[in-house]
Design a protein around this nucleic acid. Structure first.
Lengths: 191, 191
DNA sequence: TTTGACAGTGAACATTCGTTCACATATACT
DNA sequence: AGTATATGTGAACGAATGTTCACTGTCAAA
């Protein structure tokens, strides 16, 4: 029997149950009749990077099971199969989220940041409680209205800059309520 | 003892080991001295949605451990604590990736799609093997050069449209090599 | 004070776990 | 042919698993 079919079955189980199957469960997944068969299969998958094992030999998903392969740039084009070995693998969650308890998603409405490449319908990853640095994009409440703006300090003065010529910079007087700092923008196609 | 501290310890273990700790491991994580204490703790966490249990009472991460809370829109502003109950929770990986084996990431270089909100340095999630529909953004090789373009069919004719007035539409003659269809754009701030 | 609910301890249970053994079968190479 | 080498079977091992029980201490309401 070949590995890829079994690998897919295990991956499907992992996606569905959010955990890895035990050897006994892999028996039914793979069609093997002996746990020793899947034991050796797992050994191969560990070497391939699909699975990994802890100290106590409990296993966890490996890089290839969790991550997405990262290629170069668009200009560099599609790598040939030979150099695909060089590609890195990245977990979206670990890459984008640092403080999970303080991270939220919200949808962009309005076009005040369109020149910064943030368009209505985009999804924002924002982090609460972080103190913004000049140049950050923030979600703030100004005059009882919630917007997306660049946060900039000029001297000791805070200026909220839109990225749209239709709107004007805001010099908040007193009631500046910064809710969160934008850490990422995600635009999803194909619904 | 309060739950949140223990919850964080378990969450940290999960982020680090990519799997959930056993009851015995939770003993050292929480400082409890009896597995019964963590057994009842886990019961509470299951009700809260941080953990979940399988049929065989093996447990898996719950929605609150994997996902990110989704709020409304920027205009709607920050929800009051009262209505935070209504928010949904979303897993980035499950949301963005449908066919993991065929999905790759690559970095945008060049400004040919800047008017579509895709800027140099942005990261693309692309899917290989998918047949593009008119209006999709694709990664294609034209004249031995890799670019990002809108894929459009006018009549029976394929046109590759840039989203930048500096560039002209491309009417591929023969050698049109479509590598992948863009399924998402991710821009990360704060490095 | 008495009572009752709650939270933690410590020990025990049957079950399941990962691992390893010896043996059978198949495939490829000389 | 014969002979390695790999692959799957079946049964068994100790160790670790989730769960449960009886008991102790604590804190607040009656």
């Amino acid at each position: 029997m070949q590995s890829p079919k079994h690998t897919l079955a295990i991956a499907r189980f992992f996606r569905q149950h959010k955990r890895l199957p035990s050897y006994r469960e892999m028996l039914t997944l793979t069609g093997f009749k002996s746990t020793n068969a899947v034991y050796r299969l797992v050994g191969r998958l560990v070497e391939l990077g699909f699975l990994s094992k802890d100290k106590n030999s409990k296993f966890a998903p490996g890089p290839h099971l969790l991550g997405v392969s990262v290629l170069g740039t668009v200009e560099a084009g599609w790598p040939s199969p030979a150099e695909e070995e060089l590609v890195d693998t990245l977990t979206l969650d670990d890459w984008l989220i640092h403080n999970r308890e303080a991270t939220f998603m919200l949808k962009v409405s309005g076009d005040s940041m369109i020149e910064a490449g943030i368009r209505p319908g985009d999804m924002l990853l924002v982090e609460r409680g972080r103190t913004p640095r000049s140049g950050d994009i923030i979600v703030a409440e100004v005059d009882k209205h919630w917007t997306l703006k660049y946060y900039e300090r000029h001297g000791g003065r805070v200026v909220l800059m839109p990225a749209n010529k239709k709107y004007k910079p805001i010099l908040p007087q007193e009631e500046l309520n910064i809710a969160a700092v934008v850490t990422a923008v995600i635009r999803k196609y194909h619904s």
